[in-house]
Every structure is written in structure tokens, then in C-alpha cells.
Simulated assay, not measured.
Amino acid sequence: MVALSTPNLDTNFSAQDFNLLGVDNKYYSLNDFCNFKALIVMFICNHCPYVKAIITKLVHDMKELHIKYNVGAVAIMSNDTESYPEDSYENMVLFAKEHKFNFPYLIDDTQEVAKKYGAVCTPDFFGFNSELKLCYRGCFDKSGMNEINNEQKDRDLLNAMVYIVTTGKPAENQRSSIGCSIKWKG
């Protein structure tokens, strides 16, 4: 397992459209998320230890952001499922159910969406303001693969999204996300 870090924030980047199948057997596009004050597009998968380490807290924070701040969220799985069968659509359905996802979990089987976003690892977080301009490209929190730190000051993604909802501007002092590389098809 090679750990990769996300690139620095590109404030000229805007959310890219997609049309992907969710674990609820419905298709979603960017238009489905345009009525929120902010949007998180995250690239995750089922097998990555970095994702597994934060998944419970991630689901909790996405619920809090949605209810208190009207922040939308969508998770996209772009890994090669032939080489990594644990990330198959069927296993995505189970993973989302097991962890009680409160946001759509979509499969990017062509990997085109991951390429359009420039996703490099799982987890990889993109936080957009209400105009769908990129304002956050950082980590979930400082815990990495360690037990989640519940202190408010260390909740990077949540705090950044609250700042973005409040100001519409990029969050300051962004720390790169670290995770397993996207598993690209041969």
C-alpha cells in the first residue's frame, strides 16, 4: 500500500458533471446537488484502511453538515473492481448499508469522473461553495489511520465546510488528505 497526498487547492476548479449509478439503483448527476449551500464530493472505496479508519465519523459529520448547514455530500468509488473485487458494486451496497450512509454512494466504473476531478487517493475530499467553486481540497481530520479524534478543532473537513457555507470563500490552512491510490485500470 502506497500512501498518496492530495495536491494543493486549485481555486479555479469548478465541480464537474457526472451521471453515475448509486447503491440505491438510481442515477445521480451534479444537478441533483445544486440546491445546497455547499457540496462535498468525496472519492472513497470499501477496502482502503484510511477510509475504514474514518468511515463512522465521516457518516456522522456528513449528517451534521446536512442538517445544520444544508451541505450536500456524494461519495464516488472509482477503483478497478476487477483487480479489487472488495470494491465491487455489490460490496458497495453492503458497505453503505453497514455504515448507514446518509448520502449517495456512486460507482465510477469508467473512471472518467475521477480523472475529471483529478482524484488521486481514497479518501479524497473536494469541498465546493454554493457556486460550485472549489474551496477545500484537504483531509478529513488529522487522525490518518489512527482512531478518530473527536475534538472539534481537529475536524478539518467539517470546520472547512462550515467556513465555506458562512463566507463562500476557501478555507484557510488546508492539510492534504492522505490515502491509498486510486486503483486505475491497466
Rank of each mutant, 00 (worst) to 15 (best):
Phe43His: 01
Asn149Asp: 15
Ser143Arg: 07
Glu131Asn: 09
Asn8Thr: 15
Lys115Met: 10
Tyr117Leu: 09
Lys169Gly: 00
Phe95Gln: 03
Gly179Phe: 01
Met77Gly: 02
Asp87Ser: 03
Pro85His: 11
Lys57Gly: 13
Ser78Asn: 05
Gly179Thr: 04
Tyr28Lys: 10
Gly138Lys: 00
Lys68Asp: 15
Glu90Asp: 12
Ser83Met: 11
Ser29Ala: 12
Gln174Leu: 05
Asn159Val: 00
Lys26Asn: 14
Lys133Ile: 04
Ile40Pro: 01
Gly118Phe: 05
Cys139Trp: 02
Thr11Trp: 11
Asn159Ala: 00
Phe18Ser: 10
Ala96Asn: 08
Gln16Phe: 03
Glu151Ser: 12
Arg175Val: 02
Ser176Phe: 05
Asp109Tyr: 08
Leu9Ser: 05
Met1Glu: 01
Thr166Val: 00
Gln152Val: 01
Ile40Gly: 01
Pro123Gly: 08
Lys153Ser: 09
Asn12Lys: 14
Asp61His: 11
Lys26Ser: 06
Gly22Cys: 11
Glu112Thr: 07
Leu157Met: 15
Phe103Met: 15
Ile107Gln: 14
Met1Ser: 09
Lys37Gly: 01
Lys37Thr: 05
Val93Phe: 07
Met62Cys: 13
Ala53Glu: 07
Asp156Gln: 00
Met161Thr: 03
Tyr28Pro: 11
Asn70Trp: 05
Gly72Ile: 11
Met92Gln: 08
Gly22Lys: 11
Leu106Asp: 10
Glu64Gly: 00
Met145Glu: 06
Ala160Pro: 14
Lys185Ala: 00
Cys48His: 02
Phe101Asp: 06
Thr167Asn: 06
Arg175Glu: 04
Tyr84Gln: 07
Lys63Val: 13
Val51Gln: 05
Lys68Leu: 12
Ala171Leu: 01
Tyr69Lys: 14
Met161Cys: 03
Asn12Pro: 00
Asp10Cys: 03
Asp80Ile: 09
Glu86Phe: 03
Asn46Arg: 07
Gly144Arg: 02
Ala119Gly: 04
Gly138Val: 00
Asp124Ala: 04
Asn102Pro: 09
Asn102Lys: 09
Tyr136Gly: 02
Lys100Asn: 15
Met161Val: 04
Cys121Leu: 06
Ser88Gln: 14
Asn129Thr: 14
Thr122Tyr: 02
Asp24Phe: 04
Leu21Gly: 03
Met1Val: 06
Gly138Cys: 01
Ala15Trp: 10
His66Gln: 14
Met145Ala: 02
Asn146His: 14
Tyr117Cys: 10
Phe18Cys: 07
Asn12Gly: 06
Glu147Ile: 01
Val74Ile: 10
Asp141Arg: 07
Ala114Asp: 06
Lys97Met: 09
Asp32Ile: 00
Ile40Lys: 05
Phe140Cys: 09
Cys121Gln: 02
Phe95Asn: 06
Ala73Gln: 11
Cys48Ser: 10
Lys142Met: 01
Asn31Lys: 15
Phe128Thr: 12
Met1His: 08
Pro170Lys: 01
Arg137Asn: 15
Val113Glu: 06
His99Asn: 15
Gln111Arg: 08
Leu134Pro: 08
Tyr89Phe: 15
Asn91Gly: 07
Cys135Tyr: 11
Lys97Val: 01
Pro123Leu: 06
